[in-house]
Design a protein around this nucleic acid. Sequence first.
DNA 1: CTTTGCACCTGTTGGC
DNA 2: TGCCAACAGGTGCAAA
Length: 271
Amino acid sequence: MPELPEVETTRRGLVPHLVGRRVRGAVVRNPNLRWPVPGDLSGRVEGEEVLDIRRRGKYLLIDFRRGHLLVHLGMSGRLSLVADDAPPNRHDHIDLQLEGHQALRLTDPRRFGAMLWIPEAAEGHQLLASLGLEPFAPEFTGAALRERAKGRRVAVKQFLMNGRIVVGVGNIYASEALWHAKIHPLRSVARISPEAWNRLAAAVRQTLKRAISAGGSTLRDFAGIDGRAGRYQQRHDVYGREGKPCRRCGAKIRAIRQGQRSTFFCPKCQK
DNA sequence: CTTTGCACCTGTTGGC
DNA sequence: TGCCAACAGGTGCAAA
């Protein structure tokens, strides 16, 4: 379940365990992720020390002296720390073997995730170069969103989910943020007032921030030996609540589809 | 240029 | 109970 909050939670959980630690190699059981996992991955990371772990959008960057490991969790990916002799399950595709008889294990049933090696400065990489605003950066404001909407007429929900505009807002939090901002998901970005853009920017930040705090409780499970354990159930205001009363006005929450994805909203208080 | 729909893949769920 | 279609938290890419 990787949206930005989950990825950030993963990053925070990994930092104390990985930074400063050396990698012994990598075991790739199935290289067929979104892009083929490089065959020389193990040689690339062997003997390298983890310098830092960063996040850009939903991408994780594990920094080494000689390069960076770019990790994406796709729809169903998960990273966990395991004992390095822990028997792999069907979807445990990659182990990054660490000093101290542990491994960082990538599990991903649907294999929409990715693990790539970037030899140069990571920022210049194709996949990262054209990414949009980070929701927690100071540049992420209503005015910046409004500026980027100029000349466009897409529905605001799809605009929000466009990673070249804003990163990190997935299908759940797009619906949630629009509900908080009281904006109808089908509304064209050409017809949003400056005030509404401000509300939206604030709502995106607030929604993601709250979810990260909630994700903090999965942090402990994550850092645990087996990496499994129960997941925190985020309380959503509209997502998955079709037919249930709006928590603000009591009207029935509606579900529609936009671009092959479900959208939830309150028809009464979102305009 | 913007917008739309497809593709990738496995697992779960709900209706018949 | 079993079967099958629809759907699931992402996103790059081709085509319109």
